[in-house]
């Protein structure tokens, strides 16, 4: 290949590598050092304590495991609903509907809004909006305490997370669907395949690349969920909706344990790394190259 011995492969990747290094890797490495210290985030000096923080996390307190379980549950539901609904809506919106273009736009609107603002709006809806809607409709569902009950609050957070991101995945799936050659589907119709056969035998396998991208994106975004919870429940009620990132944030800034928070961050990063590699491997294997 013509590129093998060229210096361009270094030169062209350098700006990207450099920027990523100073904005992400360097601060992350310094933070990693703090995971080996006891530091409240305020004193001018941090005290080196070796692996004590990791010991605390693994052996003395199972709070971080609860938080990881919450994050895992959230991510699983978030991935499932985002991809499922996005695919269904995308399938509808690629049909010959008169309003298809407008509807695509509408579903994309929440995605262009700041997550903090999305959180605020939904807080308003769950409290004031639902209360008034209940008075009008008397639908029992609306009278539940969606942010006040710790189990319901979990679903509320998932709902808002999916609501905000759905449009993004819809656009990606629509793109994938439109890339499928129409003659393939027509040929199948001629052969007498019904709509489900066409979907499972032709559409779904050919959507491989879109599914890979969407799965990967929803996985990393699900795991890193932060802003929405911050604006919506602030981890409440009673600490039941703390995600891993929010817990790290709380440990470092609210409880003044910057060292311990950094140690949690390292562990969390490793978990994320492993999970994403697995998902990438699995979905790559199922892809069908056109």
């Amino acid at each position: 290949m013509i590129f093998e011995n060229k210096k361009e492969k270094y030169l062209f990747t350098l700006p990207a590598i450099f920027m990523v290094s100073i904005t992400i890797y360097l601060p992350f490495l310094i933070s990693s050092y703090y995971s080996l210290t006891e530091w409240n985030g305020i004193d001018r000096e941090a005290k080196f304590i070796g692996l004590e923080n990791f010991k605390t996390i693994f052996f003395e307190n199972n709070q971080f495991f609860d938080v990881l379980i919450f994050t895992g549950n959230y991510t699983a539901l978030f991935m499932l609903f985002s991809n499922l609904f996005a695919l269904i809506i995308a399938l509808v919106l690629v049909q010959k509907l008169k309003t298809a273009k407008l509807l695509r736009g509408i579903f994309f609107v929440p995605y262009i809004m700041s997550m903090i603002i999305v959180g605020f709006i939904w807080k308003f809806i769950f409290s004031q909006g639902f209360a008034r809607l209940y008075e009008i409709t008397e639908l029992g569902l609306l009278n539940l305490s969606w942010l006040g009950n710790s189990e319901l609050a979990f679903y509320s957070v998932v709902l808002v997370g999916v609501w905000q991101q759905l449009g993004f995945y819809i656009v990606l799936y629509i793109a994938g669907l439109q890339a499928i050659p129409g003659d393939l589907l027509e040929a199948a119709t001629v052969d007498g395949a019904n709509i489900f056969q066409k979907f499972f035998k032709i559409t779904l396998p050919l959507l491989g690349p879109s599914i890979t991208v969407c799965m990967f994106m929803s996985l990393t975004r699900g795991l890193k969920v932060f802003d929405i919870i911050l604006a919506l429940t602030q981890g409440g009620p009673g600490g039941s909706t703390y995600s891993a990132t929010l817990d790290i944030y709380r440990e470092a800034f609210q409880y003044n344990n910057y060292g311990l928070g950094s140690a949690k961050a390292i562990i969390f990063f490793i978990i994320v790394l492993i999970l994403t590699q697995i998902v990438l491997k699995i979905s790559r294997r199922n892809e069908v190259e056109l």
């Binding site: 009950n149 710790s150 409440g236 009620p237 009673g238 600490g239 039941s240």
Partner: peptide, 8 residues
Amino acid sequence: EAMQTYVG
């Protein structure tokens, strides 16, 4: 947080 857990 502890009191919220109690109240809930």
